[in-house]
């Protein structure tokens, strides 16, 4: 990798090292990543650095991306499934400025996809890397506050307590009510927090051809799921894992197979369900798919009327 360094005063760019982090830090992160890949689902501690945004805003994901990105990469960043939200735009601009990165909104074009809250609807392919921003990497934390104890529980695969949490859900509500960050068992060994993605996306992690990397900046942990690795959502035999489903298709593109957000359209109680993956929705509309509310939404300016 070439080290890109600009000289102060020569142009308007400040003198940051390539991709912001210094090379030693990137090496440290890469070593953590290698270990994480070698032990799927295991949380590797790493020396999380201060980044130019607050912890909890994706510093873990940004550090991983900074450690793996190169000038040939195409970076896609999504936040809540959308490419055009503030955080996604800021992070893309950050890597455009510090790593000369090419950015894209096209899932299939991207080599690195940094994400918060979603896995794109379009199938991932071999060679792509998913980078997840993780607020709480420890799936047992709410059940067991002691770090030493949770480490022992992972070390010896003592996961009965995780199951107790699901039991409590079913006992109280008749079903497992956890809808995001739904715990998974990776490669039949480690129980892992998949980050706050909806459980709708959990099946996409299973045997995915892409490499999946998880970074928790505030909690200083990195973990990974290598390509073609089993990722099973925890459940009971008589209460099997189920993903969310919607009564109606996407109001804009008519998709029946994607994760939908509820959008309030006016102050009269009007609402519609639309794909949370904005790129997926746009692609479908460009292909001629039409949702029942597309005309209304175009008229009211909610979506740009594309030809």
């Amino acid at each position: 990798m070439t080290i890109h360094q600009s000289i102060p005063g020569e142009d308007t760019k400040p003198a940051y090292n390539y991709a912001y982090l210094d090379e030693q830090t990137k090496r440290m992160i890469r070593r953590a990543l290698l270990k994480a890949v070698a032990v799927p689902g295991y949380q590797v501690p790493f020396g999380s650095r201060e980044m130019p945004l607050a912890r909890g805003w994706g510093t873990g994901g940004i550090q991983i991306t900074a450690a793996i990105i190169g000038p040939d990469d195409k970076l896609k960043v999504i936040d809540q499934g959308a490419d055009d939200t503030t955080n996604a735009v800021s992070i893309r601009r950050f890597f455009e400025r510090t790593a000369d990165a090419t950015t894209t909104e096209m899932t299939e074009d991207a080599t690195i996809i940094q994400t918060r809250h979603r896995i794109p609807e379009a199938p991932l392919t071999s060679g792509q890397i998913m980078v997840y921003q993780v607020p709480q990497p420890e799936p047992l934390r709410k059940l067991e506050p002691r770090e030493l104890e949770t480490r022992k529980m992972h070390a010896w695969a003592e996961y009965g307590l995780m199951q107790v949490k699901l039991y409590e859900n079913i006992a109280r509500f008749g079903e497992v009510t956890t809808t995001y960050d739904y715990p998974v068992s990776v490669n039949g060994r480690y129980v892992m927090a998949p980050s706050p993605i909806p459980k709708f996306d959990n099946p996409k992690m299973h045997m995915s051809p892409s490499l999946q990397l998880f970074g928790a900046g505030r909690e200083k942990r990195i973990y990974a799921v290598p390509p073609h690795t089993s990722v099973r959502s925890l459940d009971f035999e008589d209460h099997p894992f189920r993903i969310q489903s919607w009564a109606e298709p996407c109001g804009l593109c008519g998709a029946k197979d994607s994760y939908l957000d509820e959008v309030v359209t006016d102050d009269q109680g009007g609402r519609m369900f639309v794909c949370s993956d904005s790129h997926y929705c746009e692609t479908r509309r460009e292909q001629g798919h039409r949702g029942t509310m597309l005309a209304d939404a175009s008229a009211s300016g909610l979506v740009e009327a594309k030809s």
């Binding site: 003592e158 009965g160 107790v164 459940d235 035999e237 209460h239």
Partner: peptide
């Protein structure tokens, strides 16, 4: 139920 789940029981009923 915890001890049952500890030992691997996975049938809620």
């Amino acid at each position: 139920g915890e001890r049952l789940m500890d030992r691997g029981d996975r049938h809620y009923g």
